[in-house]
Design a protein around this nucleic acid. Structure first.
Length: 399
RNA sequence: GGGUGGAUGGCAGAGUGGCCUAAUGCACCUGACUGUAAAUCAGGCGUCUUCGGACUUCGGCGGUUCAAAUCCGUCUCCACCCA
C-alpha cells in the first residue's frame, strides 16, 4: 500500500473532522481499494449553499478524487417536514414550490466543487412518498422517545416550553431511511446531524444492510463569529460575487483565519501551520494571511483570475481608499435633482430621512469631497463624478 | 372537550391609561481608531420637513375616554397545562 494514499486518507479522516464513527473500519475500507458509496444530504431550505456546507463538499471532493461514488440526496421530502436538529425553534414548513425553486440552483453550486457528472443525484421523495404506515411504524419502533428528547436542542426547547411537533420525530427516520435506499457505505454530515446520521446505521441494520460509517465535519462560525446560518445572514454563499465574497471574508475577526484555512481551502496543513506560527510570532501580519485566505476561497468558486481581480479591488478601494475604476453608472431620472433624491433612486439610501442622516453624519462624498448640504442640487456639471456613501457604496453620476 | 397565558419596531424583550417613537440587548447604518478588520468609542436607527415641527406605529376590527400599546367587546393566530 503506498504511503501517499495513506497520508491522503489520514488527512481526509482528520482535517476539519469532528468525529468518525468506526474510524478504523472506514480507514481500512478506504485503503482496500473498494469503491464506496458516499451519501450526503441537503435540505433545500434556502436557494443558497454557504461555506459551512462547503466543508462537507470539499470532503466529498477529496473522496471523489480517490474514485469513490458520491450520492447526493436532495431532501425535497424531508425539506417539507423540517429538521429540528440544527434549530432552536421549530423550522417553518416549506412550500413545495419553494423547495423546487431552491433545488434548481443546487447542481450549479455543487458543481463549483465536485465533478457533478460523476455524482449521482436523488430526491428522497423518490422513495419516501411511497412508504405506508406499516413500514413507518416498523421504522418508528427502532427509536424510543427518550433517545429523541435526550438531544440537547430538544431538551432546551422542552425546558423553554416551546413547541415540538410530532412531525419532527419523523425526521431522523426519513434521513435514516435515505441511507437504506441508496445503500450508503459512508455518510458525511455536520456535527449537528449526529442523531440523524446515527439513525442511518440503525435503519440499515433493521433492513439487513451493513451499517454505514459516519464522518462528521465541524461547523464553522459565520462572518460575525456566531454559528454560520442562513437565518442570521452571516453566511458566505457559494454564489456570492467575487468582490462580495472576498469582502465578507475580510470582514471576519482574525481569530477565524486558521480555522477557515483548514476547513474551507485545500492549502496544505504544513503551510497552514507555518502561517499560524508566523502570526503568533508576529512575523506574519494577519491582514496578509486573511487576504490570502480570501483569495484562496474566491479562487475555488470563481477561478484564479476573478480572485486576483477581487483582491486588487479590495486593496485599492479599502486599503488605499481609492475610488474604484469600474463604478456602475446610474443615470439621473431628471435634469436637475437633489442629492437626496438621487441617492434614493440610485439605491444608496432607503428613504429621504435615511439619505439626510447619511449626509449629516458625513458619510457622503462626491469625487472625494464631503457633502454637507443635504439640499445640494446635482445637474449635468456633475456628470461623470462618483458618489460615495459609507465605505463601500459607489455610483457614477450620469445625466 | 376544559383551563391558563400570550401576540409590542428586523429579532429578542420591557412597558398594563397621559412623561410612549415606546426601555434594554442583538442585528443594521454613519463617523473615529485600525491592518480592511475584530474589539472599542461617538452618533444614528418610522415617514415627511420650510428643521419650528407635522404625521404614522404596539395581531385585525369596533368601542370607552379629554387622552389607549395599556381598559372593554369581538375576531384571528400561537403556546402551555388538564382530560
Amino acid at each position: 500500500m503506498n504511503k501517499d494514499l495513506e497520508n491522503k486518507i489520514d488527512e481526509i479522516l482528520t482535517r476539519g473532522v469532528n468525529e468518525v464513527i468506526k474510524k478504523d473500519h472506514l480507514k481500512e475500507r478506504l485503503l482496500s481499494g473498494e469503491k464506496l458509496r458516499i451519501k450526503f444530504g441537503i435540505d433545500p431550505t434556502s436557494p443558497y449553499l454557504h461555506l459551512g456546507r462547503a466543508i462537507a463538499l470539499l470532503k466529498l471532493k477529496d473522496l471523489q478524487e480517490l474514485g469513490h461514488k458520491i450520492v447526493i440526496i436532495i431532501g425535497d421530502f424531508t425539506g417539507v417536514i423540517g429538521d429540528s436538529s440544527d434549530k432552536e425553534s421549530e423550522r417553518p414548513i416549506l412550500e413545495k414550490k419553494t423547495v423546487e425553486k431552491n433545488l434548481k440552483t443546487y447542481k450549479d453550486q455543487i458543481g463549483k466543487i465536485l465533478d457533478v457528472d460523476k455524482v449521482k443525484f436523488h430526491r428522497n421523495s423518490e422513495w419516501l412518498k411511497n412508504l405506508d404506515y406499516e413500514e413507518i411504524s416498523k421504522q418508528a419502533d427502532i427509536f424510543s422517545l427518550a433517545e429523541f428528547i435526550a438531544r440537547d436542542n430538544i431538551k432546551k426547547r422542552l425546558k423553554d416550553d416551546s413547541r415540538i411537533s410530532l412531525r419532527e420525530l419523523l425526521y431522523p427516520l426519513m434521513q435514516g431511511y435515505d441511507s437504506v435506499a441508496v445503500e450508503a457505505d459512508l455518510e458525511i454530515g455536520g456535527t449537528d446531524q449526529r442523531f440523524n446520521l446515527l439513525s442511518g446505521r440503525e435503519m440499515q441494520r433493521t433492513y439487513k444492510q451493513k451499517p454505514q460509517d459516519i464522518l462528521m465535519v465541524n461547523l464553522i462560525e459565520g462572518t460575525d463569529g456566531r454559528k454560520m446560518s442562513s437565518s442570521w445572514g452571516n453566511t458566505v454563499n457559494l454564489l456570492d460575487e467575487p468582490n462580495e465574497m472576498l469582502g465578507k471574508i475580510m470582514s471576519m475577526g482574525d481569530e477565524l483565519i486558521i480555522k477557515y484555512f483548514i476547513h474551507c481551502t485545500r492549502i496544505s496543513m504544513d503551510e497552514i501551520r507555518k502561517m499560524e506560527d508566523g502570526m503568533k510570532d508576529e512575523k506574519i501580519n494577519p491582514r496578509d494571511a486573511k487576504i490570502k485566505l480570501a483569495e484562496e476561497i474566491v479562487k475555488i468558486y470563481h477561478g484564479q483570475e476573478e480572485a486576483r481581480k477581487a483582491k486588487e479591488y479590495f486593496i485599492s478601494t479599502f486599503s488605499e481608499r481609492k475610488i474604484p475604476d469600474n463604478v456602475a453608472p446610474f443615470p439621473s431620472p431628471a435634469p436637475e435633482i437633489s442629492i437626496i433624491d438621487y441617492m434614493i433612486s440610485a439605491g444608496l439610501a432607503e428613504s429621504k430621512s435615511d439619505a439626510r442622516r447619511k449626509i449629516e453624519q458625513g458619510g457622503v462624498s462626491i469625487d472625494g469631497e464631503k457633502i454637507t448640504d443635504p439640499n445640494k442640487i446635482l445637474d449635468d456639471s456633475f456628470s461623470g463624478k462618483v458618489v460615495k456613501v459609507g465605505k463601500k457604496d459607489f455610483v457614477k453620476i450620469v445625466f
